[in-house]
Design a protein around this nucleic acid. Structure first.
Lengths: 197, 197
DNA sequence: GTTACCAATTAACCTAGGTTAATTCCTTCT
DNA sequence: AGAAGGAATTAACCTAGGTTAATTGGTAAC
């Protein structure tokens, strides 16, 4: 992956906000990661104080409880910034791992250095703020759904929001996104099937 | 509340990030709200496309389900920006109301105009980004707690995080923050009391 | 002091979803 | 085609927390 490819990918993402950012200025060292389907970009508990950019592919953010239960926080499709804001900004450890659901191409940059360069650029800061606004709103809405709606409703909402995922990813992952067990999801699907007749 | 007071209050908040912002530039029309304990700054479902700044007092963000159950999303103490990022940025309706837990003093600004002025100021954009980072991380951690820990554990965490609230706000509000009913909280407290002997 | 009202506790019962485990389906590998 | 291994379903049982309602406190208003 060369600088031009990189530039295109970033622009495809940021330009939706109508901004021209001069990515040529970006001189911090870049790593490239190729992640095979099923593998992890980083694991829960790692130090991941880098900014990651998903150039192609699909990932999920998954956190595992002490008892070994998986919870899928987010699905993220390229092109998109991915990673842990908390780990990146505070230099702390990550609360979730990022797993590839398809083969993925990712570039990454040390956040400190990246931000040091970018903070002079008013366009970048604005895009970064818009990015943060967006992911925050997503979390807000998800919190809302968890608090107000039943698992059945959340499943139906999932099917509306991610029609393309509904049939391509395993149901256990859907269940873990909704916050229930695969068994419970199966029960819900059964119930819906009966109701539809 | 005059401009100087306002300036001080903003600075007290933003300067923790080491930024000098020239608040004198702020010429957008300001509203001042005095909210009595128990009253609402705005209600769930309102259009609240303004930036609010809590100069004094304590509030909670509370959303109510169709069945009338309350859920407390956040407690916020002055000095702090408050409001709904979603409603402010997208001009949509709010998913929660903001209720004063003490008498509060709040100033507010139409977000569009405020942002139009501020976006030229690299210091403001950086502070705004840091604010967003912070509220996002808070949500991330809260999501984590909900997914990984029992109600009992969440209650104990609450007591650690908000020792000053523990004895000043009604238990129903604590319960609604933890995501359970007052009855369930009472049960948990009973159990803990017994265990402590 | 007494009434009124709301907060908290307690108890009895209910339900959504978890747990375990057996069964059936699908792939993929040989 | 047959074997192997994971994904999904189904059934039986369990549990955390919800629901309802009765009881006890606590405090503000008269």
């Amino acid at each position: 992956m060369d600088r031009t490819q990189l530039k295109n990918s970033f622009e495809a993402y940021f330009n939706e906000w109508g901004y021209e950012i001069d990515w040529q200025r970006l001189t911090v060292p870049m790593d490239v990661h190729v992640i095979r389907k099923g593998d992890y970009l980083f694991q829960q508990g790692d130090f991941a104080n880098r900014l990651y950019f998903l150039h192609s592919g699909l990932v999920r953010y998954v956190s595992v409880s002490d008892e070994g239960k998986e919870f899928t926080q987010t699905f993220a499709k390229s092109p998109r910034i991915i990673g842990s804001t908390k780990a990146m900004v505070t230099g702390s450890t990550v609360l979730f791992g990022i797993q590839a659901l398809e083969d993925c191409m990712v570039s990454s940059y040390p956040w400190q250095a990246f931000y040091a360069q970018m903070r002079q650029d008013i366009g970048f800061l604005e895009c970064y703020a818009k990015f943060l606004e967006r992911i925050f709103m997503t979390k807000e809405e998800r919190e809302n759904a968890f608090v107000k709606y039943s698992a059945e409703r959340r499943y139906l909402d999932f099917c509306m929001t991610y029609p393309e995922l509904k049939n391509t990813i395993p149901q256990q992952q859907i269940a873990s996104y909704i916050g229930i067990t695969p068994v419970a999801l199966s029960r819900i699907r059964q119930k819906l099937k009966l109701g539809r007749r």
